[in-house]
Each structure stands twice: as structure tokens, then as C-alpha cells.
């Protein structure tokens, strides 16, 4: 959503007059907006405004009643590069007895050619460790996912979405149930990824403090009951580190010295 006339970056999500109704009730009608490369968009709205529904339409889990969604310029029905998108839904209703370790869950987010019997390369394990580290759940790697608290599970699902270092990260209330310290480091990391790497964000959140602090006091645009807070980044993509946890090293050492002091 560029205010200027000339687009400096291309659209990577285009929502074109999309309507959605559920049981004869319009959730939203004729909504159009776009997300440009290197945007950070906070999507805010009251309960029932259809924020989650909108995200589910964008990732293709729901079909809009009318209108079209394009991802990276391609209509969603023809879109193939799903590994460029990370999506973390609001709540995963997983079976607490499901036999899978945290590590297995995070590795399941990896895209690309698969070895026989689901085996992974050394590089895959490295990526997994990075993603776990980035979300501060490295100590839980061998635990069964069902044994974790809701907040810990959420961090594991964030790690799974991050493992491919996607170009577009779509997050639905990512920090619900997560303790304050982890929230801080998570926001620190995604801000860093937005400013110094080529990563674009679309995030539903109720955390107005974070939204306003980073994206500005008032929404840049509205569509029905949906409010869009936007920050577009032109800072140089100068960070050469490509693992996920790097932006946290500094922050962690800072926090630890504070605790000691």
C-alpha cells in the first residue's frame, strides 16, 4: 500500500474486491488491499471483523465468495512457490497424545526435495536448531509436542514457519499465551528481519502497544471493519547473516546482563 504514485516495490499479496459470506451473512464485502514487498502490515479489527478469515483466504484455506487473491503476482490457483510463505494460525488444536517431538514438528516445515524415509540432511538440522534457538525453545527439542504449554506450542509453530526463512510471514495473533520476555524478543527479531532483510509481514494482533509503537498511531487505511497499520521499509538490506537466531544474540546478552545487574 504505497502512498506515492510510483510503486517502489512490487505487490506480493493482492486482494482484489474479495467478499466472503458465511451462512448467508457477509463477513466482509468487496475488500481490496495489497501488501508490498518489505511492508509490515498490522491487521486490526474488532471480533467478527473477519481478520482470521481474511488470512485464511490469503493462504488458500478458504475460497472467497467472490473476488480474487494473487500471491507474488500469480492468481492463487496457479501459485506454486508456497515455500516462500510462512503461516502461523491462531490456535492449533492438536491431539495432546500425538507422538511427535518438537524437533519433528519444526522439521516438518522444511520444503524442498525429501530424502527417503523422511531423513534430513545436516543442513536441515542446522536450520532446525536455528529456528528453535530463535524462538527460545531449543531446550524442548526432544519433548513431545503435546507435553508443552499453549505458549510453548505457539513458539514451536512460529519456529516451524521460520525454518524456511520465508519472504512473506503471515501471523495470526502470534504472541497469544506467550510470556512477556519471549514476546519482546520475538518482536525484536521480526522488526530486525523487516528492516535489515527482505522479509514482509502481515500480522493480525490485538497488541496495540506493539502495533502503534512500530507501525504508527493510526491506521493507514481501512476496509469495512478491518484496519491496516503499515510501515514500509527502505532501509538497506545490509545484514549478511542468514540464520534466524542472529538478531537475538545481541538482545539476549543484553537481557542477561540486565538480570545479573
Amino acid at each position: 500500500m504505497n502512498i506515492g504514485t510510483e510503486a517502489c516495490h512490487r505487490d506480493i499479496i493482492t486482494v482484489d474486491s474479495v467478499s466472503f459470506s458465511y451462512q448467508q451473512r457477509d463477513v466482509f464485502k468487496n475488500v481490496s488491499f495489497s501488501v508490498m514487498e518489505r511492508d509490515f502490515i498490522g491487521l486490526i479489527g474488532t471480533n467478527g471483523a473477519g481478520k482470521t478469515t481474511m488470512l485464511r483466504i490469503i493462504v488458500g484455506l478458504l475460497k472467497p465468495t467472490s473476488g480474487e487473491v494473487r500471491l507474488f503476482g500469480e492468481p492463487i490457483s496457479q501459485f506454486k512457490a508456497w515455500d516462500r510463505i510462512g503461516y502461523v494460525p491462531q490456535r492449533n488444536n492438536l491431539n495432546p497424545l500425538f507422538p511427535a517431538t518438537v524437533k519433528e514438528v519444526v522439521l516438518s516445515g522444511l520444503s524442498g526435495k525429501r530424502k527417503w524415509f523422511g531423513r534430513h540432511s545436516r543442513e536441515d538440522y542446522q536450520k532446525c536448531d536455528d529456528a528453535l534457538m530463535a524462538m527460545g525453545v531449543e531446550d524442548l527439542a526432544e519433548k513431545r509436542i503435546g507435553q508443552l504449554s499453549g505458549g510453548q506450542q505457539q513458539r514451536v509453530f512460529l519456529a516451524r514457519a521460520l525454518i524456511n526463512t520465508p519472504s512473506l510471514l503471515i501471523l495470526d495473533e502470534p504472541t497469544v499465551g506467550i510470556d512477556y520476555e519471549t514476546q519482546e524478543s520475538f518482536f525484536h527479531m521480526i522488526k530486525h528481519m523487516h528492516q535489515h532483510h527482505n522479509m514482509t509481514f502481515l500480522m493480525v494482533s490485538h497488541d496495540m502497544e506493539m502495533i502503534k509503537g512500530y507501525l504508527g498511531e493510526s491506521p493507514a487505511s481501512t476496509a469495512g471493519k478491518l484496519n491496516f497499520y503499515i510501515r514500509h521499509s527502505h532501509e538497506t538490506q545490509d545484514c549478511i547473516e542468514d540464520n534466524l537466531a542472529h538478531s537475538l544474540k545481541h538482545l539476549r546478552s543484553q537481557m542477561e546482563s540486565q538480570k545479573e545487574g
Binding site: 493462504v59 508456497w82 519433528e104 514438528v105 516438518s108 516445515g109 520444503s111 525429501r114 524415509f117
Partner: peptide
């Protein structure tokens, strides 16, 4: 099953995530 174990795991664990991963 050996060839598709990764996909079978993902679809078993989280069908929506499997769908969003294409």
C-alpha cells in the same frame, strides 16, 4: 510410504499446514 513419509507426517499432524505448504 518410505518415499512420502515426510508428506504423510505433515498431513497427519496438521492438514492445514500441509495444504498451505502447497
Amino acid at each position: 510410504v518410505g518415499k512420502h513419509l515426510h508428506g504423510l507426517f505433515l498431513i497427519t499432524f496438521d492438514e492445514e499446514a500441509a495444504s498451505v505448504s502447497g
